[in-house]
Design a protein around this nucleic acid. Structure first.
Lengths: 219, 219
DNA sequence: CGGACTATACTTAGGGG
DNA sequence: ACCCCTAAGTATAGTCC
């Protein structure tokens, strides 16, 4: 009857192992949430469990990847600093390579986002059917865009230009993320087509990683 | 006197926040260790704390990155499967881009490894001064290389070639990871030079990411 | 198998040195 | 600041349904 202290060894019994896994997983995630809340610290937990269908990521895929990429950047910087002359070129190569895949990742992210947005616009999917974690990013981008848009409206207002309709602003914004203005429900005639064109254009962005332009080095 | 139930809100008081952080961080890491031990589940925890000098990674940088990359792979696969015709090209673009940075990452890993090995050989650093986590990778590569080498020795033995010394085998192996055979202590005359050449050659490997060869698509 | 329960083990807030 | 202590609060092993 008395619960005994569990030994820290692999639990052979399958069912009790799974039960323990479930209980403790939720325990850890709760603790992680608490630490994050109490101390406002970015924390990420990944559990690549064979018991769940997909690996558990907390608080979200994006957060986890963000932390990893930040860490990576730091690591590379540290290494770069420690370098001595003879090793510089090799480290730089690694650094540049890292930089380029980081850029590539960012571009992917944008493409994914645009796809979701396009789906929402075309009615293929609905915002309510979008994953919560994606929505967060989505929202973030929208807000960034709107801020940009408002800034531009301000500028045009000051110039007192007569041809500065909201739609024109949207298509001429310097910000590279293009999407509809959700708050204007009336002036959306032909808007769908414009968005489509914008997305099409954005897809022509070059995706090749730049030639790293490194020559063979003398040792 | 009586300890009260803490509210789940940010702790304003700096010192108690830090104290709580330290206690709870160690608590989480312990829990993570226990879950990993009891259930043999790959789990990774990252805490990008402003209180510690560097972000906390558990159990190790490699493990964390491995879990992330595995997850990424899975995610892409799932998405690819779910795709409908109209979206295929975009998804494929993401997929290919993902693939190429994965490849790039692998290449970086190899370059880093070679650098460590070269430093060890040249006496600039010692194996004992290498991080434990790096050593694990290091060892893995060495074993792979030796296995490859032995395979090749077998082949040459069967052909009864008279000029097949161990060194020749080493320089002609088809495996792209080149390093000395650590178990032969005697025949290492001029070996350092050979390794140097090999490393130099290996550095000429093309590192540009292939053109993804995607054309603008009709919607 | 998956919840719900509960006694016990563990964690940790708060306080003192 | 740090470590240590202890009681209060929490997690969870074992059990039942």
């Amino acid at each position: 009857m008395t619960r005994q202290k569990v030994k820290m060894v692999y639990i052979e019994n399958e069912s009790s192992r799974k039960s323990t896994y479930k209980k403790r997983k939720s325990g850890i995630l709760k603790k992680a949430y608490e630490l994050a809340t109490l101390c406002d610290v970015p924390i990420a937990v990944m559990i690549d469990s064979p018991y769940d269908l997909s690996p558990e990521m907390w608080p979200s895929r994006e957060a986890v990847e963000h932390v990893v990429s930040e860490w990576n950047k730091l690591s590379v910087m540290e290494k770069t600093k420690k370098m001595v002359n003879q090793e510089t070129f090799l480290q730089q190569r690694i650094f540049k390579s890292n930089e380029s895949w980081k850029k590539m990742w960012k571009e992917n992210k944008e493409l994914e986002m645009k796809e979701v947005m396009f789906d929402c616009l075309s009615g293929k999917t609905s915002v309510t059917r979008t994953k919560k974690s994606d929505l967060r990013d989505f929202n973030c981008v929208i807000e960034q865009y709107l801020k940009d848009l408002n800034r531009r409206v301000e500028i045009l207002k000051n110039h007192d230009s007569s041809s500065s309709s909201a739609a024109d602003v949207a298509t001429t914004t310097t910000h590279d993320i293009n999407m509809p203005r959700f708050e204007t429900g009336s002036s959306s005639a032909g808007f769908y087509d414009r968005i489509r064109d914008q997305i099409e254009n954005s897809l022509n962005v070059k995706h090749n990683v730049k030639d790293l332009d490194l020559n063979k080095k003398q040792w």
